[in-house]
């Protein structure tokens, strides 16, 4: 099978899977024949008379909700009712700030660690200890010291993004091929030029791989962090809709989180492709 035919077949199969999934979903959530309500009064008390659907939505209800959200994503009607676009912007701003700070710290510092075998070995135990700690475990300390929930969120993103980047940068820099360094030595290349013209491009694929791992973790963590600190953001939106018992909105938010995460990964993937070289 040629490459083009193969991708066509894969696409068709994807659509088929989606169709089967939607069909099962539709059948599973289709409204059952209503049991006759005992009395109107009683039904009203239970909220059955209200239009709001309880339980899991049908695909059609989800599509309708999605359309409403996407039609007006930027409205702001007080602290508990903001458009999905505004919530996303808050989350992305926190991730962007924490992630950028992590790059600014991890890449230069990882560079130094990678250049010095002694520093590498001296700091490695600390990094290995810090790496597996759930970033949310830092939240109380962040809230206590920073005393601002929004900045604490940024700090949590920073602390979870920093380790993969630090480790990968140090590893990438430490494993630059000896041959290339020998070339720079015989050419009497100055240290700064060596760092930027040889070591950085040589280690770039490893560094960007670390960045890609980090953005994935950061996007996972922001949802949990915002559920915890509240206020704004897509994580808070999910929690708020759960409190409203509006599962349609929760499922819509889950889809949005997935799509945004995919886009973030795709962007760093593009960067990765740009700096990767074939030996």
């Amino acid at each position: 099978m040629s490459g083009k035919a193969q991708s066509l077949a894969a696409g068709a199969l994807s659509l088929l899977f989606l169709g089967v999934f939607l069909a099962i979903w539709h059948i599973a959530t289709a409204p059952k024949a209503q049991v006759q309500a005992p009395a109107d009064e009683y039904a009203k008390l239970l909220g059955k008379g209200a239009k709001k659907s309880a339980g899991l939505p049908t695909p059609e209800q989800l599509a309708e909700a999605a359309l409403t959200h996407l039609k007006d994503p930027l409205y702001d009607r007080g602290s508990n009712d903001k458009g999905i676009g505004i919530q996303l912007a808050h989350s992305l701003a926190r991730v962007g700030a924490g992630y950028a700070l992590a790059i600014l710290f991890a890449v230069p510092f990882g560079f130094l660690i990678g250049m010095s075998p002694i520093l590498y070995r001296a700091l490695n135990p600390f990094i290995q200890l810090m790496k597996p700690i759930s970033p949310l475990a830092w939240m109380p300390i962040a809230l206590y010291t920073i005393k601002d929930s929004s900045i604490s969120g940024v700090f949590v993103i920073f602390i979870c993004s920093v380790w993969p980047m630090l480790i990968n940068t140090a590893f990438g820099v430490a494993s630059v091929r000896r041959d290339w360094l020998d070339v720079t030595r015989t050419l009497e290349v100055k240290p700064l030029r060596k760092a930027f013209a040889v070591i950085l491009p040589a280690a770039a694929p490893t560094i960007v791989t670390g960045m890609r791992i980090s953005i994935g973790i950061a996007w996972l963590v922001i949802v949990a962090a915002e559920m915890l600190v509240g206020g704004t953001g897509i994580g808070y939106f999910v929690w708020n809709e759960w409190n409203n018992l509006n599962l349609t909105n929760v499922i819509f938010a889950i889809l949005v989180i997935g799509v945004v995460g995919m886009i973030l990964d795709f962007l760093i993937g593009r960067l990765q492709a740009a700096v990767t070289y074939v030996e």
Partner: peptide
């Protein structure tokens, strides 16, 4: 120096 493994920078 001409290195055994050519030592060209692949990027």
């Amino acid at each position: 120096v001409v290195f055994q493994g050519h030592a060209l920078m692949p990027w």
